[in-house]
């Protein structure tokens, strides 16, 4: 996979985050000018019980809440394990680091930087799903198994034009495997 044109970083806290902390973190990050896209990863919180004798029954869970990020509401589908960001340039990563320093006071976090955290080139599945002229913002954000689209969050004020980017967030879940 080729490197992304834009720098990326990944926030990995030592603990899985509650919806309240996720909301605080995302509001801080979405308020930073120059954050283009964000992917939230974490273990899935299914709406119904997926396995066992109670399969199909409702699965009330206090961690599956609707949170609000810069005025946009969306429901958490998983418990936040890490947040991957695509940013305009390296200076934005420092702003992200400062925001994380403010939020993660009770437990540490790791901020990884690189250019291969989010897929930057359309794969075969992307081609099959979106065709040859897929929106570059979509690539790497969507989970092929799901039908819901990314959440669009109003961009923070940016000094330069930056291409008029709107920030986009996609929540993604890891599979529930048994072991």
């Amino acid at each position: 996979m080729p490197d992304s044109v834009f720098p990326q970083c990944r926030i990995v806290p030592l603990r899985l985050l509650s919806p309240a902390t996720t909301e605080r973190l995302l509001n801080q990050i979405a308020g930073i000018p120059g954050v283009r896209r964000a992917v939230i990863n974490g273990p899935s919180l299914p709406v119904t019980i997926p396995y066992g004798p109670a399969r199909g029954a409702a699965n009330p869970n206090t961690n599956r809440q609707t949170i609000q990020v810069r005025g946009t509401e969306f429901e958490m589908r998983g418990q936040t394990g890490m947040v991957t960001l695509e940013v305009r340039d390296e200076s934005v990563i420092e702003a992200v680091r400062n925001a994380c320093d403010e939020i993660f006071t009770a437990f540490p976090y790791t901020l990884q930087t690189g250019r291969q955290f989010i897929k930057s080139q359309a794969s075969l599945v992307d081609y099959a799903k979106y065709g040859p002229n897929a929106d570059e913002f979509i690539i790497g954000l969507t989970d092929p198994r799901r039908h819901d689209s990314p959440v669009i969050i109003p961009a923070a004020a940016c000094n330069d034009n930056g291409g008029g980017l709107s920030d986009q967030t996609q929540t993604e879940h890891t599979s529930n495997y048994s072991n």
Binding site: R15, L16, I49, N63, G81, N176, N179
Partner: peptide, 14 residues
Amino acid sequence: GATVHGHSLRLAED
């Protein structure tokens, strides 16, 4: 009894 996933994950905030 079922859906046991979690033993190898980081603990939650609490």
